Computed example of a mutant assay.
Amino acid sequence: MTTPSSYPIGTPLHPWGAAEIAEWRARQVKRRSYADEVLQPIESLRDRFDVSVYGALEYAGESFPLLAVRSRGWRDDLPVMLVTGGVHGYETSGVHGALQFLRDHGDDYTGRANLLVVPCVSPWAYERINRWNPDAIDPNRNFREGSPSGEAAALVKLLAPLRDRILMHIDLHETTDSDESEFRPALAARDGKVFEPGEVPDGFYLVDDSDKPQPAFQQAIIDAVAQVTHIAPADASGEIIGSPQVAPGVIEYALKQLGLCAGITNARYTTTTEVYPDSPRATPQQCNDAQVAAVRAAIDYALAHAAG
């Protein structure tokens, strides 16, 4: 067992205060460009989609516009399909998978569905390849009214008018080796707890909603992604990241109760993807392709069963 003393910030078993958060924030270095890698590709889509600014984040003199991409010719009689990525800024294929989906397949659903895609929910964290925002808050435990996370609050506000109209929401994530080497130790240190090491699953898996599971929907996505990359096996305890595997490559969380992004709306079909980019069996492009395959399968299934 590893204790929080292995993390370089804070006092073991004492939650962080403002000084520790400031020290953590000072260690975060910009490593890539949201403007070049996200905003610019979105701008290139303006001739095919409607692009809107749904908010802006201001952090220490830096400004990050938050962009949403919608189907052109939005129709109220069509179902709404929601795709979100970059809730955690270090989960790269979520962002680039969403952009690749729009570029290569967004037009496939013209006249069949309204697409709403938010490729990068957390731009500050994207640039720093981090999980948290500058206040050491994880947006993906805070998607609720009155959220302390500006990233989460902006998305909740954007989706509020559509909460009951969205048929499908797929949230694109990754599980990485850095979860065990950095982010979970940092979480334990921040909260004044003991760090209990876990096991990073090698492969793709999904998180269904335990309050309203849709096993056939999840299976359709797993089947599609299996054509692109390998599906994560359960560990020796029959679990994936500490949760029982309910079907090959599928676990369940209480999405709304935990304040997770995929629980924002009342969509019938919801899922969170988890790609493993550190696998020796997967390239970065395969990770992006896996996200695209998941999005396409999710939309296709929801359309085929919309009247069900």
Rank of each mutant, 00 (worst) to 15 (best):
S5P: 07
S6V: 14
P8I: 08
T11E: 14
G17M: 01
A18P: 02
A19D: 15
E23P: 01
R25Q: 10
R27T: 13
R27L: 15
R31I: 09
E37T: 04
V38P: 07
L45D: 01
R48L: 04
V53T: 14
L57K: 14
E62M: 13
E62G: 05
A68F: 00
R70I: 03
G73R: 09
D76V: 07
T84P: 10
T84G: 04
G85Q: 05
G86Y: 01
Y90Q: 11
T92P: 02
S93C: 06
G94Q: 09
A98G: 11
D107N: 12
T110F: 05
G111T: 08
L116Q: 09
E127M: 04
W132N: 06
A136P: 10
P139E: 01
N140W: 06
N140S: 10
R144N: 02
S147C: 03
S149P: 01
S149C: 13
E151I: 10
A152R: 11
L158W: 06
I166E: 07
L167Q: 04
I170F: 09
E174R: 14
E174F: 03
R184F: 11
A189R: 00
D191Y: 00
V194R: 11
V194H: 12
V194S: 13
D208Y: 04
D209T: 06
D211P: 01
Q214K: 09
Q218K: 13
Q218A: 15
V225K: 01
Q227P: 02
Q227M: 14
G238I: 04
G242T: 07
G242S: 04
S243A: 14
P244W: 00
Q245K: 01
P248W: 01
P248A: 00
G249F: 08
C261H: 05
N266W: 01
Y269M: 06
T270C: 10
R281E: 15
A282R: 11
Q286N: 08
V292M: 07
A298M: 06
I299Y: 01
D300E: 08
L303S: 05
L303A: 04
A306W: 03
A306E: 14
A307L: 15
